[in-house]
């Protein structure tokens, strides 16, 4: 296996155009692993991005950026681990950065997302979120919606979702509890 990763102490050789081309032709094992996994994961990334952004075009852009960043940072990915968790985590961080940037543009300065209680702009695309349950979930806060999507849609364990969102596991469970309570108010109970 031709491995072309270089120590970070050699940036003058690592980031030249020539080495970039070579790396594209002979990607590292981690990058190959990510590339192989992307076709299967991308639709999930996109729908998660759609649940965050509530906008098809922005979701497409966000999912694309997450994959690009995942490939660019492939050297940080541990081969043999879960590509989906890696890419979901990157996507969520990118989304938080976008929200923060939007807040700064609005003159609010830098504030932690959780404190600011930011929400995606605009109404959900009714074409996609037309069912009652989905529509109710889209009305949850961003934090609750992320937890619901990662655990109840993507099937991640609490601990995995907590790692992706960079919060303690208890926070994930509290968010799920709050989400469940709100959804119960809106949707009613089980038959």
């Amino acid at each position: 296996m031709c491995r072309l990763d270089r120590p970070s102490a050699w940036p003058w050789t690592y980031n030249t155009r020539g080495t970039q081309i070579i790396r594209r032709i002979f990607p590292s094992r981690a990058e190959q692993e990510i590339r192989r996994a992307v076709p299967g994961i991308h639709p999930r990334l996109w729908r998660y991005a759609l649940s965050l952004t509530k906008d098809r075009a922005e979701a497409e852009d966000l999912a694309q950026e997450a994959v690009l960043q995942g490939l660019a940072k492939a050297a940080q990915f541990t081969s043999g681990t879960h590509v989906d968790r890696w890419l979901f985590r990157i996507l969520h961080r990118l989304w938080l950065n976008r929200l923060r940037a939007a807040e700064v543009r609005r003159g609010a300065g830098f504030v932690p997302v959780e404190e600011a209680g930011l929400t995606a702009p605009g109404d959900p695309e009714q074409t996609f979120f037309g069912t009652e349950v989905l529509s109710a979930v889209m009305d949850l806060s961003d934090a609750q919606r992320s937890a619901v999507m990662l655990v109840y849609v993507e099937g991640f364990a609490y601990a995995e979702a907590a790692e992706m969102l960079d919060v303690p596991i208890g926070t994930i469970m509290s968010r799920l509890a709050a989400a469940r309570a709100r959804l119960k108010e809106r949707l009613g109970g089980r038959e």
């Binding site: 639709p43 999930r44 729908r47 759609l50 649940s51 996609f128 069912t131 349950v133 989905l134 979930v137 619901v148 999507m149 109840y152 849609v153 099937g155 509890a177 469940r180 309570a181 959804l183 119960k184 949707l187 009613g188 109970g189 089980r190 038959e191």
Partner: peptide, 18 residues
Amino acid sequence: SALDVDLSGLRPDMDALV
């Protein structure tokens, strides 16, 4: 009871987006 909401339709709804 306040937390017991039926979310079984959520995943199929999201799968339908794929």
